[in-house]
Simulated scan of single mutants.
Amino acid sequence: MSEERAGLLDGAIAPVSNVKLFGHEAAEEFLARSYRSGKGHHAVLIEGPEGIGKATLAFRFANHILRHPEPASAPETLSDPDPDHPVTRQLASGASHNLLHLHRPVDEKTGRVRSAITVDEVRKAGHFFSQTSGTGNWRIVIIDPADDLNRNAANAILKILEEPPKRAMFLVLSHAPGKLLPTIRSRCLPLRLHELSPEAMDKALGQLGLSIPADRREAVLALAKGSVARALKLVNYGGADILDAFDQMLAASGPSQRKMMFKIAEALSGKDSDVAFGFFTEHLGDHLAATARQLALEGDLGGAEHFARLSSTINQQLGIAAAYNLDRKQTMLDVLGAIVR
C-alpha cells in the first residue's frame, strides 16, 4: 500500500485523485481570484472539520497553479482537474517534482501510520525547496493536517514559513487551528470551510456510492454533521451501531447497562478497530463537553465541573493507554464505568 493510500477510509477517494468537490464554491472562487491577482499569500491555512473536503480543495488548487504557472493568465475559477492532463497524472501518481505532500508516514516495521508528522518529514521540505525546478514552476507543499505536526516538526515548518523561497506555496490544513502554534497561524492566510450542506452531502456520498439503508439514512446524515468522513465511519466502520449501543448504555442500568458496556468495549478492541476507536473516543469527548455545557446552562455548576473534570481524566487515561499499549478492552471498560458511575 502506498503512503498516499495509507490511512484512507474504506469507500473514500484519495484527495489527490478526486476530481470532484462539492459545497465549497466560494472558497474555490476566492483562491482562484487571489492567485490570478498575483497578490495571493504564500501560505493558506485551510481550516474546518475533518472530512469536508479540505485536502481535495488543496490538491485541486495545486493542480490549478501547476497547470497555470503564470497568475495573470490563469482562469478566474477552478475547474475539475482533467484526469488525462500530465499535471493531474503526475500528482495522482506521486511523480510530480513540484508538489510535496507532508502527512503522517507509515512505520516500516509495523506497516501502520505513525501518530505524528515528525521533523524528519519536514526536512523533506527543505530538500524539496533546495532543488531547482526544471520547469521553473511553483513549488507547493501541502501539510495534511498540520494538527499532526509534533513540536519539533512545527518549529521546523515555522522557520520555512518565515523565509519562504520564491514561487513557493504552502497549503496548511487543520481540523483544529486553535491547537496550532500561534506563530504558524499568524504567517498564514486563514480560509475557513464549513460543514457540507445536505445537498452537498448527497452529491458527495452519491459520488462515492455509499449505500445507507433507507430507514437509517436520516439518522446517519444527522450524526455525520456535514462530514463525508463521519458518514463513512458511521456506515463502513460500524460507528452508527456503536453510538446506538452507547445511547442504550446511558439509558440502562444494572446488568443491561453492563452488557452494553461489554458490547462497546469488544467492538472497539477487535482487529482493525483503530478507526472505530478513534471515532468513538472523539464522540465521547464531544458528549462529555456537551453535557458539561448543558448542566452549566441549567445552573448545575457542580455537575458541570464533574463532567469537565471527567473529560480531562478520561483524556489522560486514553493517552496513557495508547503510550503504553495497554489492553484496549479493559481501558474502554474503565472509561465507560467512570461515565456511568
Rank of each mutant, 00 (worst) to 15 (best):
S37A: 09
Y35R: 01
H41V: 00
G48N: 14
G7W: 03
L21K: 09
G48V: 07
A55Y: 04
I52H: 06
E29Q: 08
G51D: 10
K54V: 06
G7V: 05
S2F: 10
K54F: 03
K54A: 02
S17T: 12
F59H: 04
G23T: 14
L57S: 03
A12K: 00
A32F: 09
V44K: 02
G48D: 09
D10C: 02
S17E: 15
G53V: 06
F30Q: 03
L9P: 02
R33C: 06
L8A: 13
I46H: 02
I13L: 14
G51E: 14
L21Y: 10
K20R: 15
S2E: 14
H24R: 04
R60C: 07
P49A: 09
A26E: 15
A43W: 00
H42V: 01
A43L: 01
Y35M: 00
H42P: 06
R33M: 13
S34I: 03
G23P: 14
I46C: 01
E25F: 06
S2A: 11
E29W: 05
A62L: 13
F59T: 08
E25G: 06
G51K: 09
R5L: 10
H41Y: 03
G53H: 08
L21H: 07
A14M: 11
G48Q: 11
A12I: 01
A14Q: 14
H64G: 03
P49G: 05
L9R: 00
N63H: 12
T56F: 03
R33Q: 15
G38F: 05
E29Y: 05
I65N: 11
E28F: 11
A62S: 15
K54Y: 05
H42S: 10
A12S: 14
N63T: 14
G11V: 01
A27H: 03
N18F: 11
A12C: 07
A32H: 10
V44M: 00
A26N: 13
I46F: 01
G53P: 02
K20Q: 15
V16Y: 04
F30K: 03
G7F: 04
N63W: 09
V44G: 01
A43C: 09
K20N: 15
G38Y: 05
P15E: 11
R60K: 15
A6D: 08
G53E: 10
I52S: 11
G53Q: 08
F59W: 14
G48W: 03
D10G: 01
A14G: 14
F30V: 02
V19S: 10
I13Y: 11
